[in-house]
């Protein structure tokens, strides 16, 4: 494969054909801030925080590092004053939307942001699209970016609690400003978005210990995806903890039958 000669912040390095600037920068320990990037998902280039300058021909141009594929020898500047200034504005603008995010607060200090410039918008989301893309990667049935322009927001269909959600919690895990919450109460899992319940998923009760655990549909989804590769099939009536314990007991019993040194107390604990 063709090797590209790249000047990364003044240093000569090589890159693979089609490699993104972000990948290259990470290889060389050059930090580029990101907000909407996840190694598990295709780049969306929505937050624009990773914008850098690239000179492939005569003129420098602004591109997003997360999805710009290097195809020619080029010079990349990841931290020029212009780039830093643009990032500073992005952070200031997003802080006005979502002032309580620790991630953004840290970046605001790094970039010397003036947080008084923009009047706060009462919102709790930076529209990075990670949750909707994560949802799409799992089932694509619950969250989407509804509305357009200034009205764009993460939502469920008809703003109602989704009946298609499997409660996998990917959206909760991936939210960079930690604004999507998940709670397991009263035998159901709730995903809470913009302070409203976005989905309720029933949790099965463990027949062994009585605890509620992993959502029902989640297991179905796993079985569907794994198909015949799933060995052994998950036992949907027993929680993972009990399942592990039962397996341990089973193995212990076999050991006892073979070597005759099994402690009886272990069995007494099994419910």
């Amino acid at each position: 494969m063709k090797v590209l000669n790249i000047i990364l912040n003044g240093k000569a390095v090589t890159a693979k054909m089609g490699q993104t600037i972000l990948e290259l920068a990470r290889e060389h320990d050059v930090f580029i801030p990101t907000l909407c990037d996840s190694p598990a998902l295709e780049a969306a280039a929505m937050c624009r925080l990773c914008t850098v300058q690239v000179i492939e021909g005569k003129w420098p141009k602004y591109v997003t590092a997360c999805n710009f594929p290097l195809r020619r020898d080029a010079e990349v500047v990841t931290d020029s004053p212009d780039v830093r200034h643009g990032r500073k504005l992005i952070i200031e603008l997003l802080m006005a939307r979502c002032p309580t995010s620790p991630e953004l607060q840290r970046l605001a200090v790094d970039y010397g942001c003036d947080l008084e410039r923009f009047t706060p918008l009462n919102d709790d989301c930076v529209i990075c699209g990670l949750c909707t893309r994560a949802c799409e990667a799992v089932t694509g049935r619950t969250l989407s970016l509804a509305g357009r322009g200034v009205a764009i927001h993460v939502d469920t269909a008809f703003q109602k609690a989704s009946t298609f959600c499997i409660g996998c919690g990917a959206c909760v895990q991936i939210c960079p400003v930690q604004k999507i919450k998940m709670e397991d109460v009263d035998g159901e899992r709730r995903i809470i978005l913009h302070g409203k319940i976005a989905s309720r998923v029933k949790l099965p009760q463990c027949t062994s210990c009585g605890k509620y655990f992993g959502p029902v549909i989640d297991l179905k989804q796993v079985m569907e995806r794994m198909g015949e590769h799933l060995i052994p099939p998950p036992n949907a009536t027993v929680c993972p903890e009990c399942s592990r314990r039962n397996l341990a007991i089973k193995l212990g019993k076999r050991y006892f039958e073979q070597y005759g040194v099994f402690e009886e107390e272990g069995q007494a604990n099994a419910g």
Binding site: G140, L143, T156
Partner: peptide, 11 residues
């Protein structure tokens, strides 16, 4: 998925 149609309808 319903949510995708909703996305289109509100866009």
């Amino acid at each position: 998925p319903l949510t995708k149609i909703y996305e289109v309808a509100t866009f």
